[in-house]
């Protein structure tokens, strides 16, 4: 019994230690951001590997999610003779929820895991220690550009996802199922608000981008420097990232659209 309580306490302390390390790490990363802005080359390379290389999966997923929304929405709405509202259904679901959330989940899987593995391997092969020996702060040189690239890429990727999805829904609804073209766009424009819906969606995707990238770079930096440790850290990035996104999404939705 005592042993069990003690192990519970040990686990609890380990969790809090990790949260503490994560927050200190975030502060050090933020302190490194001005330096990154002074060296845009570093940022550019990371924007490429984090943002550009995620484009394909985002484009394809966005298109198909939009098409599925169009199909499902049509099948439900047509029962109420309300298929003209298809544009509203598709665009609001995408802009408010699916755009930011699905993009963040894909982002955690595609870019987050790569960041963790990359930084974790740098640690395992002692490249980070090597930098420290040369008086180069690895958080400023390695982590900060990756972090900033992730935070900047997420809103752009989410916007692309939503925009492509709206056209995917349009293709299925208007192109294949015969919803009126004018009704699709005009109902959408009448019901979607620039500030309430689109801007809040952008804020959501920024928050998700920050959290997912933070988890990814921290797990990499904090990984046990062995092959197994890096593998576990990568898994944790995807799992914790996805859970954090879904949990935060509920809180943000309650704050933004609660009333």
């Amino acid at each position: 019994m005592i042993d069990w309580l003690r192990s519970l306490g040990r686990d609890g302390i380990a969790v809090f230690e990790k949260i503490g390390r994560g927050n200190l790490f975030l502060l050090r990363t933020l302190a490194g951001l001005p330096e990154v802005l002074g060296r845009p080359r570093l940022l550019l390379a990371q924007l490429y590997s984090v943002g550009v290389l995620s484009l394909l999966i985002i484009l394809v997923s966005g298109l198909f999610v939009g098409m599925v929304l169009g199909l499902q929405g049509y099948n439900t709405l047509v029962q109420f003779k309300a298929e003209e509202s298809l544009g509203v259904v598709v665009s609001l679901s995408l802009v408010r929820e699916l755009g930011p959330v699905v993009t963040a989940l894909l982002f955690a899987g595609r870019a987050g895991s790569a960041l963790t593995a990359e930084i974790g391997l740098m640690k395992a092969t002692e490249q980070l220690s090597g930098m420290e020996m040369m008086a180069v702060d690895p958080i400023h040189r390695v982590v900060a550009p990756r972090f900033l690239a992730g935070v900047l890429s997420m809103p752009l990727l989410a916007a692309i996802f939503s925009a492509v999805g709206v056209y995917g829904g349009w293709f299925v609804g208007v192109g294949l199922l015969g919803v009126d073209d004018g009704a699709y766009w005009s109902q959408m424009q009448a019901k979607v608000d620039l500030y309430d819906d689109i801007w809040n969606g952008v804020i959501k995707s920024m928050v998700f981008g920050l959290v997912v990238t933070w988890i990814a770079v921290f797990e990499g930096y904090d990984a046990v420097p062995t092959s197994e440790g890096v593998g576990r850290a990568t898994t944790r990035t995807v799992v914790h990232g996805a859970l954090a996104v879904l949990g935060l999404d509920f809180i943000l939705t309650a704050l933004m659209f609660g009333d």
């Binding site: 490429y48 943002g51 752009l156 939503s162 925009a163 709206v166």
Partner: peptide, 25 residues
């Protein structure tokens, strides 16, 4: 790489623009 990043940023901005102009009120 520069070109690709440029395209990516421009594409993201264009998507936001489409959402603002075409989708919203």
């Amino acid at each position: 790489m520069e070109l690709m990043v440029g395209l990516f940023v421009a594409g993201g901005a264009a998507a936001l623009f489409v959402l603002a102009m075409q989708v919203s009120n």
